[in-house]
């Protein structure tokens, strides 16, 4: 496999990695950029995603968007959520998964965004 993998397991800090209570089941760390590199994008100038109210993210303890997004579009940097919309796979998971419905989610303009070759 070309995908960079190291076997550090992400345990501790309240992060459950397996269903086993002993937490033995580790998850490999994955460089999602290397995965996204195989996917074709036609990025628009502006973002099709936006945080409605940054205060809500600040108060959100779980911040599940940092985990469930398959493209790791969302990062927590210097006290706010940043959005790497260029690598968005347009699945819509964040719109459904944000516990506060705090993501303003539109499709990219017609013709822009992800361009699957195989699908």
């Amino acid at each position: 496999m070309n995908t960079a993998v190291d076997t550090r397991s992400r345990t501790g800090e309240g992060v459950t990695t397996g269903y086993r209570p002993d937490g033995r089941t580790g998850l490999p760390a994955v460089d999602v950029q290397r995965k996204l590199f195989t996917t074709r994008f036609k990025a628009d100038k502006g973002s099709h995603l936006a945080i409605k109210d940054p205060e809500v993210c600040r108060d959100c303890e779980a911040k599940p968007c940092l985990y469930f997004c398959p493209a790791e579009v969302y990062k927590w940097e210097e006290g706010r959520i940043t959005i790497a919309f260029e690598g968005c796979l347009e699945c819509g998971t964040c719109r459904i998964g944000c516990p506060f419905g705090n993501i303003d989610w539109r499709y990219p303009r017609g013709g822009f965004g992800v361009q699957y070759k195989f699908g």
Binding site: R10, L27, A62, P64, P70, E72
Partner: peptide
Amino acid sequence: MISDFQRRRVRPHELLER
């Protein structure tokens, strides 16, 4: 399910690699 990914704080692509 997205609710499971929410709760478990598992990244889908990490699960795929595993």
